[in-house]
Amino acid sequence: MADKSAANGQEALEEKLDRLSRKPGVKASIVLDRTTGSIIKTSGDLSALQNAKSRTESATASFSNEANVAEESQSRGLEEFAALIWNYVNSSGQLVQELDGEDELKLLRLRTKKQEIVIVPDSKYLLTVVHDTPPA
């Protein structure tokens, strides 16, 4: 029963992230560790999880037909993105902390002209989802 449920849990995890990425407009999601910022899980279109510069970089890298280089630059872009998100969440958390020490950051929705980034921070992890917004 236990191992079955564990297997189920694993499946359910995949399913949950999959379900998220299948939702209309959702481009990608990434799970980070809250304390260290390490990347735990990603899903969806990873190129959405990069800044524009590294996106073009990886695109040119893929043109050069060197799979290695492309992959590397993509993972680097991913890490940069994760770092940005992590820093953003931390500074937001700091803001909240300084406004009211007993308060806690619960949800970040960042609307931009092109997309929306939704971040759910938790004590241990944080989930980030990038999705398209209806044209506004």
Binding site: L13, R19, L20, R109, V118, V120, D122, K124
Partner: peptide
């Protein structure tokens, strides 16, 4: 965490 956070995001959407 994943359970909770994905719920939040789905509700948000």
């Amino acid at each position: 965490f994943l359970d909770r956070s994905t719920k939040v995001i789905e509700r948000a959407f």
